[in-house]
Nucleic acid binder design. Structure first.
Length: 717
DNA sequence: GACCTGCTGCGGAGTG
């Protein structure tokens, strides 16, 4: 029935593709998009035909004969644009609709051609759109004044992120340009945790509908436990041997949570394969592997029907880049979020008749616990809800500069009006927006000239820099080159000097010389090396995962997916907490283990709340040791004093601004997470810290409600 | 104990 609704050229495309039927998400999208002008979120798993679900009806509905570009597709990745270009262009040939890639690596000739004859569909990144607003606002008008649809791919990757707020703001600015029509948004998404929050993203929650296909795949999960030995060693040898056995004849993706470990695993598996005469197709894939090497790996995976292969990777292979199907997905130690686990699992068994196989290794009891908790929550259908920041002062600052540049100067009232009407900033009070603009004037990034605001002398450097178009920071790195070929990059570290060895792109290298001014390292192949040092902050674990971990500790059931060693590790960990006498329903109870003159409080709470508790303890000048992996705080107080301490901390939590101001002054690195936060007035720096880095509300609630059960009380009774 | 993402305009050399 949905098929009948489509335009004839689109139906011809479907016939030529020899599709037997439309997927559920496609059928639903066709009916809805053709019937209304509402916004839609199309949520279903990887490889379920979401792209077609959006484009089949849009191509049937939109009149492409009018001047201008009626359909804009926005993607978080260049690689995804290049993939989607081929699919969309193939479809568009049936309708004579031109498709143009518009990103930093796209052909300039093609862009020029589009500007001369604006038509069809444009595929763009948020940063390229930002650049167009700043550098060529007349082009934005020429191209997008008559937009009818904006398709946002992998929209979940924007939710709850600074880049998402940036994109929201760009959408609002597109609406302001959209003078001859109005456009609807169609977001393509994986399963997400909070659909009402996702609907806000379009800028009009009430006119946004969710089309959801919950059909999942059967997944067989297996947990295998190999404790890391004390002598160090990055990955336990028995684990590597088992991993080799499990994957040597499969197409496998291995996710070890860090670039360094991805290199270790790729190199060591290749060495084992060398010794026993296995296949040589071992790769690594992450942001520090050079783009061309990554593209080769992607191409190999996609085009090899029969050869087994193994890619040790990070989240670079989480999003929808087309690498075909794999037989096995391996997670080494706990994934940091369910959302990420979903994406990784979705990579396996993509052919319709296949079961997905998931292999979860743990090297340490707490990681095993977290991994089990994630898996259970995954099965329950839980996904972390992500809340978009309501007070993104830093992004408002960035967009204020961008708008002034776009308009080549404008009155203060016009700027403030445009910011207030921008859906990304509606909850920022008018007086606060004014204060941010005032600060921009004070630091000379803006200047007032005859009633107009223009970019100031110092601001010119900011807005004319290549760095202006993105809202995220990147680390400085040295390019690693072998015989004229770039292999990848490594960050500056003490390791980077001549004759040091390192692993990169699944190979071992020795550094010949380091050219610091040229940011270049020349390497030659070697036979033994260590993983490169990469830096990064900690990951953010959602409180629900920690609750589930505690639940696992306080019950007796043994998850059937666990191997023998895993069962034993879980038993030992449960034994450690047996003295606390936790009931099966823990509710607000949290265990405390008492040693001689210290105690360890296990908060079993999320990273942001733990961070806040840590900060409050620092304010009180109390000595402690925090361990985020165990979600624990070790303090030199007696259990009897714990309630008083909680009450003191809670009072601090309610009035923390002064301490945060102090902390920022002493440690500007605190604002590292917000690229445009450093230029803000202090009170707004405090505000973005409170909303995005800490969770003092959650901490206060924890301090108020938690009932401590200590091992001491239990053994006394 | 993290991971990821993007990029203008210009000049000049090289290619067809």
């Amino acid at each position: 029935m949905s098929y009948e609704l489509l335009a004839e050229p689109v139906r011809r495309y479907i016939r030529d593709q020899r599709w037997e039927s439309l997927r559920p998400i496609q059928a639903a999208a066709i009916q809805h998009i053709l019937a209304t002008d509402d916004n839609y979120l199309l949520a279903s798993r990887t490889a379920s035909g979401k792209t077609e679900a959006a484009f089949l009806p849009i191509l049937s509905k939109v009149d492409f004969r009018v001047a201008g570009v009626p359909v804009l597709y926005i993607s978080p990745l260049i690689a995804l644009i290049n993939d989607q270009f081929q699919r969309v262009e193939q479809l568009c040939r049936y309708l004579d609709v031109p498709v143009t890639k518009w990103h930093g690596e796209a052909s300039r000739t093609a862009k020029q051609k589009l500007l001369q004859q604006p038509a069809g569909i444009v595929l763009i990144t948020p940063e390229s759109l930002e650049a167009m607003f700043v550098n060529a606002p007349y082009q934005v008008k020429t191209l997008f004044a008559s937009l009818r649809y904006v398709v946002i791919d992998e929209i979940h990757s924007f939710l709850g992120t600074d880049r998402g707020i940036h994109l929201q703001s760009l959408l609002a600015r597109l609406r302001a340009v959209n003078t001859t029509s109005s456009f609807a948004v169609v977001g393509l998404s994986a399963t997400i945790g909070d659909y009402s929050e996702a609907k806000r993203f379009t800028g009009d929650e009430s006119r946004t509908k969710v089309l959801l296909d919950r059909t999942g795949k059967d997944i067989v999960a297996q947990f295998r436990y190999f404790p890391a030995n004390d002598t160090g060693g990055d990955v336990p040898l028995p684990l590597l041997k088992d991993l080799y056995k499990q994957t040597s004849t499969s197409k496998a993706l291995i996710f070890p949570n860090s670039r360094g470990l991805a290199e270790v695993i790729a190199v060591k598996l290749r060495q084992i394969a060398d010794r026993v005469g296995g296949h040589p197709y071992y790769f690594s894939h992450h942001s520090s592997v050079h783009k061309e090497v990554r593209e080769y790996v992607e191409h190999f995976a996609k085009n090899n029907q029969r050869q087994p292969f193994c890619i040790a990777c990070t989240s670079t292979l989480e999003l929808g880049i087309d690498i075909g199907s794999v037989d096995k997905v391996v997670q080494v130690d706990a994934a940091h979020s369910i959302a990420s686990l979903i994406q990784r699992v979705g990579r396996s068994g993509r052919r319709n008749d296949e079961q997905s196989q998931l292999l979860l290794y743990a090297t340490e009891p707490w990681s095993l616990l977290q991994s089990l908790a994630c898996w259970q929550l995954y099965q329950e259908g839980f996904v972390e809800p992500l809340r978009t920041a309501r007070l993104p002062y830093d992004l408002l600052l960035h967009q204020a500069l961008s708008i002034v540049k776009e308009r080549s100067g404008c009155s203060r009232a016009a700027l403030l009006m445009q910011l207030r009407q921008n859906a990304a900033f509606t909850e920022i009070p008018a007086a606060d927006a004014e204060a941010v603009v005032e600060e921009l004037l004070r630091i000379g990034w803006l200047e007032a000239l005859g009633g107009e605001l223009i970019i100031g002398v110092d601001g010119e450097f900011v807005v004319n820099s290549r760095n202006f178009y993105s809202v995220f920071k990147t680390e400085l790195a040295l390019k690693v080159v072998h015989a004229g070929q770039t292999v990848g990059e490594i960050p500056f570290s003490p390791q980077v000097q001549a004759d040091e060895n390192l692993l990169l792109a699944a190979r071992i290298w020795r550094i010949k010389y380091v050219d610091v001014p040229a940011k270049r390292v020349e390497v030659v192949p070697a036979h033994d090396g260590k993983k490169p040092m990469f830096f990064g902050g900690g990951g953010v674990v959602h409180p629900r995962i920690r609750e589930q971990m505690l639940q696992l500790l306080s019950t007796k059931a043994v998850p059937p997916e666990l191997d023998e060693a895993g069962r034993e590790a879980l038993r030992v960990l449960r034994q450690e907490f047996a003295g606390c006498g936790l009931p099966p329903e823990v509710g607000p109870m949290r265990p405390v283990l008492v040693q001689e003159d210290k105690l360890t409080l296990f908060t079993f709470n999320g990273t942001k709340i733990n961070r806040s508790l840590t900060f409050l303890l620092q304010c009180l000048d109390i000595e402690f040791v925090a361990d985020e992996r165990k979600s624990s705080l070790t303090l030199s107080v007696t259990p009897a004093l714990l309630n008083d301490l909680f009450e003191q901390l809670r009072l601090f939590a309610l009035d923390v601004d002064f301490h945060l101001q102090d902390a920022i002054a002493n440690n500007p690195g605190l604002l590292e997470f917000a690229k445009w936060g450093e230029a803000l007035p202090l009170q707004f720096q405090v505000a973005i810290l409170k909303e995005r880095y800490f969770d003092f509300g959650g901490a206060a609630e924890f301090l108020e409600k938690t009932e401590v059960v200590s091992s001491l009380n239990a053994s006394n009774s």
